[in-house]
């Protein structure tokens, strides 16, 4: 162990050096095209402090100002004697007691932290991928079971579905779902997007499930059947649990792909992470920074998922 890690030392250093050189050359390249990095513009698109102004709805005057520490309550009275109390943040207060005001004059403001477009986009991507994964898993499970069923019709239909989906580009499928099915069935873009992703993932999941079922030794089924279990009981209690455990790594890979593939739904104007990134760029011109940030956010989502799956795998490994 110790001698092995000693041997690895030079290689580790070499790796770091190469990564450093790549980063340095990227930096040099941007230097040459005279790009000014504006990373400071990025954080506001994750969360920003939104200020809303409190306005007096009528012509009138300030009666009493009551400071309550961070906030201040302002009692107003209209010319007709109507009273109203507004609360604003103390530093933003811009009226004094007895002051005459016209309607729509602002007396101060309240601020509130709001999620920016990148956060909202990431949540949208997360939501799309989660829902599509869930339905993709169900579709894939059913199709995978049909694929190994004794019924020739179920088998052919499932093969047809899998081949159809795997043989066409996801981008085209999304367009068909949105423009054709979306119009014919009158479904919204989100539903169309999620359906396209789920049906796309389902085809791949089906193949993974089929392989998993077929990888369970025949002896398991024979043992179950020899105990009098029905084909269904065998599938539910014996084959599927073992198959699912085996296919967890490829399934995880599939769901990670799905998170990445979900970026394609931005073409039908769903505001996912990619589309949010594009929108932010139109207002900041911080093109490089935003795309790097978007890439990092995808990386974050996918690595959290793979950690999660690794944890589940370790939990399931107890019977090995």
């Amino acid at each position: 162990m110790n001698s092995l890690s000693k041997q690895l030392w030079p290689w580790r250093i070499l790796t770091v050096v190469i990564l450093f050189l790549i980063a340095a050359s990227l930096w040099a390249a941007t230097k040459r095209i005279d790009y000014t990095w504006r990373w400071n513009r990025v954080p506001q698109y994750f969360a920003y402090n939104a200020e809303t102004f409190e306005k007096i709805p009528f012509d009138g005057r300030v009666l009493i100002i009551n400071r309550l520490g961070d906030t201040t309550s302002v009692e107003l009275e209209s010319e007709s004697g109507e009273k109203l109390t507004l609360v604003v943040e103390t530093p933003s207060l811009r009226v004094s007691e007895g002051e005459e005001l016209f309607a729509d004059d602002s007396i101060g403001s309240n601020s509130e932290w709001k999620a920016g477009p990148l956060t909202m986009g990431m949540l949208m991507t997360l939501w799309l991928s989660a829902v599509a994964s869930f339905f993709g898993l169900i579709i894939g499970l059913v199709t995978g079971l049909c694929r190994v069923s004794k019924n020739p019709t179920l088998r052919s239909l499932s093969i047809f579905y899998v081949e159809l989906i795997r043989g066409t580009p996801l981008l085209v499928q999304i367009f068909i779902f949105y423009f054709f099915l979306g119009t014919v069935l009158d479904i919204g873009r989100i539903v169309a997007g999620i359906s396209a992703l789920a049906i796309f993932a389902g085809a791949y999941v089906a193949e993974i499930i089929r392989a998993g079922i077929q990888s369970v030794p025949k002896g398991q089924t024979e043992a179950a059947r020899s105990l009098g279990m029905s084909a269904t009981q065998n599938m539910v209690h014996i084959v599927l649990p073992q198959a699912l455990k085996r296919v967890l790594p490829p399934l995880a890979g599939q769901f990670i792909s799905l998170i990445k593939d979900s970026s394609l739904v931005s073409v039908i104007a769903i505001t996912d992470l990619t589309k949010s990134g594009r929108e932010v760029i139109t207002s900041t011109f911080a093109t490089f920074e935003i795309w790097f940030t978007v890439a990092l956010l995808y990386l974050l989502l996918t690595s959290v998922l793979s950690q999660l799956i690794a944890w589940v795998e370790r939990r399931l490994a107890v019977s090995d």
Partner: peptide, 16 residues
């Protein structure tokens, strides 16, 4: 089959 038990060469216990 429930009336006929079978024991296999490879045991075929359910590993999970």
């Amino acid at each position: 089959r429930r009336e006929v038990g079978m024991v296999f060469q490879q045991f075929n216990l359910f590993p999970h």
